[in-house]
Amino acid sequence: MPNLPVPVVTIGLLLASNIFMTFAWYGHLKYKDSALVTVILVSWGIAFFEYVLQVPANRIGYGYYSGAELKTIQEVITLTVFAIFSVFYLKEPLGWNHLVGFGFIAAGAFFIFHKWT
């Protein structure tokens, strides 16, 4: 396997971990008839894989990215994954207010990553 650049590995692992996280946290919403203890246990099982990917992503990325940059990448990926999940899995539309809110978060990411001198 060729050595991939740190940003590719870090962002790829964070993306994969966020997919697991989103299903762990929100996938059960379609199963309102399932017992709460059942969805908690299933969610924990799914979240295990989130951590298996998240921890190495942060360990690999730290040093190339600062802690604040890693967290910002995580949040932008989280919102992107959740927006797609919300539309296609939960069948909830995104409104203009969601897009404006995401735009403000993207502006925040700009300020985190901009190198001020």
Rank of each mutant, 00 (worst) to 15 (best):
F88L: 12
K115T: 13
A109K: 07
V6F: 01
S43N: 09
V81Q: 01
T80R: 00
V8N: 02
G27V: 00
S86I: 00
A57K: 13
P93A: 02
I112V: 15
F113L: 03
K71W: 08
G95M: 07
K30N: 12
A106D: 03
K30P: 10
W96I: 13
G61S: 05
L13V: 08
G101K: 13
P93G: 06
N3R: 14
L99Q: 05
T78C: 03
V52T: 04
A109H: 08
I105Y: 04
L36I: 12
L41K: 13
L90R: 11
E92V: 04
V52L: 09
G61H: 05
D33A: 12
F110I: 14
V39L: 08
N3S: 15
S17H: 07
L53R: 10
Y26A: 05
A83G: 15
I105L: 06
W25S: 11
V76S: 08
L4W: 11
N18R: 04
Y31V: 01
P56Y: 02
R59N: 11
L99F: 08
L29P: 12
A47S: 09
I105S: 02
K71S: 12
T10R: 08
P2E: 14
W116A: 14
L90Y: 10
R59I: 10
I40M: 12
L41Y: 07
P93N: 06
